[in-house]
Amino acid sequence: MEAEIINFLFNGTVNGAIFSLIALGYSLVYGVGHIMNLAHGAFFMLTGYMLLWFPSFLPEIPWLIATIVVIFVTIIGGLAYIILIKPLQDTSVGVVLITFGLAFFIQEYVFVLSGTTPYSVKEFKIIDGVTKIPSFSFINQFIFLIFASLIIVSVFALFISKSKLGKSIRAVSQDREAASLMGINTNRVLLYTLMISAFLASIAAVLYLPAAALNGPSMGWGYLTNSFAVVILGGMGSLVGSVVGAYIVGYVTSFTSIFIPNGPSWAHLVPIIIIVIMLLIRPQGIFGKKELR
């Protein structure tokens, strides 16, 4: 029993750490530009597969490869905004359709190159091995992930509240027209926002996937669903809400898969149950103020 409780707490924290990184970027893009980016999960998945592909033609220095991959995915995020999303951002249907198409394209591209076999990218672990505290063993990479995630989230919060770009991001998210009248280039702010969002997703993948596995090209959708549940729970566009929501979803998922019979199967249902319950009782989310639009 004791082992299960500790297991539940640890897994829940790991889930929360990873979901908060992914959902933060997703929520940011929605909050600032009302852009529903369905390719967000695909960015996460693509990072994992790039870690798999790049060692074949780059010098085998893990941190260098990881940095290059993160930069690559960030640039792809920026390009996706410039080429695909920007011309269509007035029609919400268009943005959703085109990011869905992009997500599918990335998925099928990965499928052609790597198929559906699971792969491991464990050589990118930053800290190897396990820590044993009397009878429990924790994977070191996950411990690192928890702290790294907390640090990144704090730095991000500082960046949003203090830096000039952060201030313009907040201005655009509050009132786009007024922001552009104040001399803020809203399109450029949105571009940076999308790049930050892709950057956070790919950092999350670099930290998490080496200790887990690449489960085929369609794994991005699962993370997209989870981040959707997180932002519905926390409130769309609310950054505090995303982090709190991420940890709640993380703990609930972990609780379900450990304590409930047939747990791992029910754990798949957690996001949708959270979405449905939240929509029925408080559609604007825990920290949302505005009415859901």
Partner: peptide, 15 residues
């Protein structure tokens, strides 16, 4: 509404 509905139905089908 709108894009939320898209994602909500997508989540349903994935799950």
């Amino acid at each position: 509404k709108g894009p939320y509905l898209a994602l909500g139905t997508l989540a349903f089908s994935l799950i």
